[in-house]
Design a protein around this nucleic acid. Structure first.
Lengths: 175, 175
DNA sequence: AAGATTTAACCCTACTTTGTCTTAAATTAT
DNA sequence: ATAATTTAAGACAAAGTAGGGTTAAATCTT
């Protein structure tokens, strides 16, 4: 009896010194899923010929987990950014012309629009009426982010991706 | 025997429709820990008298988990932003004058400096030499963030926090 | 019609972040 | 000295993120 309970847990306790120890928490503006989605979208936009590009190819070229990427790209498909097709010669393709898909569209489809609207301190009703102390500074930030993400299209990014020495993923991009 | 193994797991499987279902992933620029740290630092800076403020008081006023906040504030203490003192009348206090502690200092102590330096796509060596396609736009963003966080001090924020109708936490702040 | 290919859906695991609780250590007050 | 108070440190649980598989469904090729 007791041995069973004794062995039941085997907790993988991690030091926890202070707050799970220094700098394990890497904070990014975008989630991994979103970054992968952006990279994949740029990749698809940067490929010349018109057919569908298989997710397998994308995941290999960009060094992204195939299954995870599949789910991410499903989100883009459901958001109307990509079209997908099953079977041989299947894959994904842009649903619109690359100059009509903005970075904002892709981010919104995967991570949502919170980063474009939320208060720095995450306070639900932060706004002009009842602002948080950082409201003004942050509003300035957000509007810059909003502008940049709106005006940057997949075409812009794909064009840059095709330039010499520009990298799309961790490994040098070989289109 | 078998019942024991049968009951061992009880997985809390969550739909996973597409990518762990839509919009569960709330992406923020700052971690919860960092937001709490900022709120607490502003609170301490906004309290008039000079003694130590107990973490219990801060957690109650700002509606933050006491134990979690304790760890966060330890990080600020270890970073030299706060002083802490045990025992009755103990608590935390700013280690420097509030106008000499920037938002950047607080963020760097808790979330690190990645958001101020990292590429939008998280590529390790993204820079002038081998940029990612979004490098230029993002560099512009980052520098704005950097500037804002550097020039904003705890004094600025504390002053605003003391204004009418400004909120520091989810609940109305009652200093 | 049968087999191959490829996305979609589903299940599960590992790790990280957030949060709760307990015990230890420091310090003050009595 | 003893008790009370308060941070520090540690164990652990719950929830979220990233990722790895398997099976199902659609579609093409033969």
């Amino acid at each position: 009896m007791q041995e069973i309970f004794a062995q039941k847990k085997k907790s993988p306790y991690i030091a926890d010194k202070v707050l799970r120890n220094p700098k394990n928490n890497i904070v990014m503006v975008l989630s991994k899923a979103c970054i992968y989605g952006i990279q994949a979208a740029i990749y698809v936009a940067s490929v010349k010929d018109v057919g569908y590009v298989s997710i397998q190819e994308i995941s290999e070229k960009l060094n992204i987990s195939f299954h995870f990427l599949t789910k991410v790209l499903q989100q883009l498909t459901q958001a109307g950014i990509l079209n997908s097709y099953r079977g041989p010669k299947g894959g994904v393709a842009l649903a619109k012309q690359s100059e009509h898909i903005s970075l904002y569209n892709v981010i919104a489809a995967i991570d949502g629009t919170d980063i474009f609207t939320e208060c720095m301190l995450g306070l639900p009703g932060c706004g002009i009426a009842t602002p948080c102390p950082a409201h003004d500074s942050w509003a300035e930030m957000r509007s810059k982010l909003f502008t940049i993400c709106h005006r940057t299209t997949l075409r812009d990014l794909a064009e840059k991706a095709n330039q010499y020495n520009v990298r799309l993923a961790n490994l040098p991009l070989t289109v």
